[in-house]
Design a protein around this nucleic acid. Sequence first.
DNA 1: TAGTGGTCTAGACCACATC
DNA 2: ATGTGGTCTAGACCACTAA
Lengths: 257, 257
Amino acid sequence: MPSASLPEPPETDAPAASAGPAFSPLYQQIKALLVRSLQSGEWKPGESIPSEMELAARFKVSQGTVRKAIDEMATENLVVRRQGKGTFVATHAEENIQYRFLRLAPDDGVASGMARHFLECKRMRAPADVGRALDLKAGESALVIRRTLSRAGVAVVLDEIWLPAGPFKGLTAERLASYAGPMYALFETEFGVRMIRAEEKIRAVVADAASAELLGVPVGAPLLSVERLAHTYGDKPVELRRGLYNTNAHYYRNELN
Amino acid sequence: MPSASLPEPPETDAPAASAGPAFSPLYQQIKALLVRSLQSGEWKPGESIPSEMELAARFKVSQGTVRKAIDEMATENLVVRRQGKGTFVATHAEENIQYRFLRLAPDDGVASGMARHFLECKRMRAPADVGRALDLKAGESALVIRRTLSRAGVAVVLDEIWLPAGPFKGLTAERLASYAGPMYALFETEFGVRMIRAEEKIRAVVADAASAELLGVPVGAPLLSVERLAHTYGDKPVELRRGLYNTNAHYYRNELN
DNA sequence: TAGTGGTCTAGACCACATC
DNA sequence: ATGTGGTCTAGACCACTAA
């Protein structure tokens, strides 16, 4: 219960946020409620959420408590604050940067976008390792997308993308190719799946015949292997992406803090 | 100036934090002052800084303003808060994790430490690219350290580490080998240089004869090339580290948010 | 002018660590 | 018992945006 700063006797009713089994600070409970509203689609990507005052009234807490909840959500990139305008649900579309999760940068500073080319998009039974990574039920099928990213006409990235077939029913290579924005933006608007967080495992490998052909390098050339597991709300894994990057004229950048 | 929440006429004197040329929120000014104190060595790594109340009194602001300044410093890993005890200057020694900046993880979950072996540590004129990265004056010399990291008796990492000779005068291979903790902890205690932040550029390369020998792989085997530029306070670069990682049984892990 | 997020304050109480 | 950081409140004013 929030403390009372007045000599009045403290009120005994809990301020919204029904007790539940776990104890946590009020602002964490508020945050959890807000995240659930995001998850349930109460506010869609790009839309604004209610003002801090409104939310404070709804949850019967002070504005400062709501603020702290939203602060954390902002640092987790779940929402974006804009002074004078409001707080907005984060989206992979209309973001400043084209690809929020792509860490590949060109050696020369030119930040031109990359051209996509979809090789295939088909439904199939998921291999065991993919099924395990995506928490698929036994026998549940998956979509696999293969595509390249090119800069200045040269293929730099070869991706193999695994998705659970259920949530992405109806996804085709044509739909992918005709969509202008980032793939994750399409996933948001068409399938209601928002990528929140991802982990990558990176290794150095050598090009096999097929990869070498597509990336225009000799067989045996060194390539960066980037395996990404992307999650949506509740840390639920929804995409396994295996990428091969040609790092002759590009590098994978990372910040350590 | 902080706003007054009383009907009194607002006091005209600025609350410490002498004006300066740039405008910024009070808590940012406080933060800058605190960082300068860290930089000047007023509080050493591992020590506690004054309590929030003390700092609030010193700067003539409220505890909440100091708190917000320290909050940001905590998220930047400059300090660590410990409830009931105080706020402590972050250090690379006595941290839970052995190597704060090393992102290499073994395929099997075993989190055993790695054995270091120093090959050489000598002073020499810095190559042009190293001099540029470290902001060295023309002709200023540098130290170069070469070492390996091994797990289970197998060399996994081959590092070439460039440091400005000035701040690290007296550093020898013997001193490095006899020190128990992480290298960055030695830099802190012996040379007063704290690594705060780093950027890494990662590529896939093939092993040359020398690297192959040291890492026990065939010439031409794929290796992860990790070039790290580490900075101290004020974003001053103080270390250029070029690492080659054997990713046969390890991977470079990264989190995307 | 009204509404939003951003800053700042002052004070209360809680949780934890230490003596 | 005391002191620390952690949470929560209530209210003020500032900075920005849009009608």
